[in-house]
């Protein structure tokens, strides 16, 4: 591999890698909202049926 081709490839990789790092540093707002909702549901006990007892068997069921 010629030194100049190697330099071009290196520069390309540096550019691509820095782009990836930028994405990685960016705050994942949607994921954070999901995480917040999970914690809020837990703290405020919002989940429907989370504490409700299991439904009893249907009364009209045949023996």
């Amino acid at each position: 591999m010629s030194p100049s081709l190697r330099n071009v490839l290196l520069a390309g990789l540096v550019l691509a890698a820095s782009a990836c790092v930028t994405i990685n540093i960016y705050f994942p707002a949607a994921a954070a909202e999901k995480a917040a909702d999970r914690i809020i549901e837990e703290v405020w006990q919002l989940r429907e049926g989370a504490n409700a007892p299991a439904q009893p068997a249907a009364e009209g069921s045949k023996p």
């Binding site: 990789l13 890698a17 990836c20 790092v21 990685n24 994942p28 995480a35 999970r38």
Partner: peptide, 18 residues
């Protein structure tokens, strides 16, 4: 290092660790 950065950025997309 490039491939590692790529996989790290991919893993950061889905969920936040809580």
């Amino acid at each position: 290092a490039f491939l590692l950065a790529l996989s790290l950025s991919a893993s950061a997309q889905g969920n936040l660790e809580i």
